[in-house]
């Protein structure tokens, strides 16, 4: 059994080398598809991360009534938290708000004078961010129901648009990745089918001397897996290089950061290896199916 396994693996490598032109073509196609798929996935990841970041910026201000004391404000806080879907909740006292406004207006001396140094006209407030932006409206409406709340600053339109973009990006991204996978499977299957035609003789001989289906299949499977693994590694190298180069360029130009590679490079690597192996092995199995299905193929027709 062990010697068979060794033989089959060696046979897989030998086939790979004997049909090196086809192997090379398969790898090229698979690498292209993996690169496109990987780029689509990475762009999608970055867009949704940027969306998340934008969402965080979009905090809702919950302004409390003038009569709300420090004790009361704590009870309001618990009530807000009870609504659910709250990510962060931060108390902004009227003094903090006043200081923030003053610093923004510091260039305009006359305005500063006019406001004198009292913060009394400003309400106390909570700065609230949400976990799930798609439930923005419901959550805001629920908060509005709470007593002692004077006003909730509400940027529904912005959030709606943000949600829309996010949805489109993830759906389109998934479609692109899915379609590319089908396309690459189709191309690999056809490439391997071409080599299969050349190896019809070999398969016929194998059948005639009594090889089991799995024995015939395994070298092709090994071949597909090697093609897949190799393509995965090459794609990973290329994507890593491009991503690192691009992210350093983008970070030095824009303030919005790109998702750091160190936090998910291993997901990219595993994704490439698995997708490559899956595409390679399914390609092999699909292309050989026809030759194993019938009982013939031994003698000439």
């Amino acid at each position: 059994m062990l010697s068979s396994t060794k033989y089959l693996i060696r046979e897989g490598f030998r086939n790979l080398w004997t049909n090196r032109l086809m192997s090379f073509a398969s790898m090229g196609v698979l690498i292209c598809c993996l690169l496109l798929m990987g780029s689509a996935a990475l762009v999608s990841v970055n867009i949704s991360s940027a969306m998340g970041w934008l969402g965080d910026q979009n905090a809702v201000m919950v302004f409390l009534g003038d009569d709300v004391t420090a004790e009361l404000s704590d009870s309001v806080k618990t009530q807000i938290e009870a609504v659910g879907n709250i990510k962060t909740i931060e108390f902004v006292s009227r003094e903090d708000a006043f200081a923030s406004i003053m610093s923004k207006l510091s260039d305009d001396a006359s305005m500063v004078d006019a406001l004198s140094d009292t913060a009394e006209f400003l309400p106390n407030a909570y700065k609230v961010t949400f976990d799930d932006l798609s439930r923005f409206e419901v959550t805001v409406d629920q908060i509005k129901q709470i007593e002692k709340i004077q006003h909730v600053s509400d940027k529904r339109d912005f959030v709606k648009r943000l949600n829309g973009i996010n949805k489109v990006v993830s759906v389109v991204g998934l479609w692109i990745v899915g379609m590319l996978f089908v396309v690459s499977l189709f191309i690999i299957t056809n490439t391997i089918k071409l080599t299969m035609y050349v190896r019809k003789l070999e398969i016929g001989i194998m059948k005639s001397v009594g090889a089991t289906d799995w024995f015939i299949r395994l070298p092709f499977l090994v071949e597909g897996i090697i093609i897949g693994l190799f393509s995965g590694i090459v794609s990973f190298g290329l994507v890593t290089y491009v991503y690192l180069t691009a992210s350093s360029a983008v970070t030095s130009t824009f303030t919005i950061g790109i998702v750091p590679y160190s936090s998910f490079w291993w997901i990219v690597l595993l994704g490439f290896l698995f997708t490559g192996m899956f595409a390679g092995s399914s390609g092999s199995l699909i292309s050989i199916r026809k030759y194993l299905k019938n009982d013939g193929g031994i003698s000439n027709d």
């Binding site: 059948k207 005639s208 009594g210 089991t212 289906d213 000439n300």
Partner: peptide, 22 residues
Amino acid sequence: RHKDLPFYRRTMGIVFQDFRLI
């Protein structure tokens, strides 16, 4: 059955007109 065929074929040796060498 299909899966019995390999074992049946092991009981015979086949010589072809066109040799069928790899």
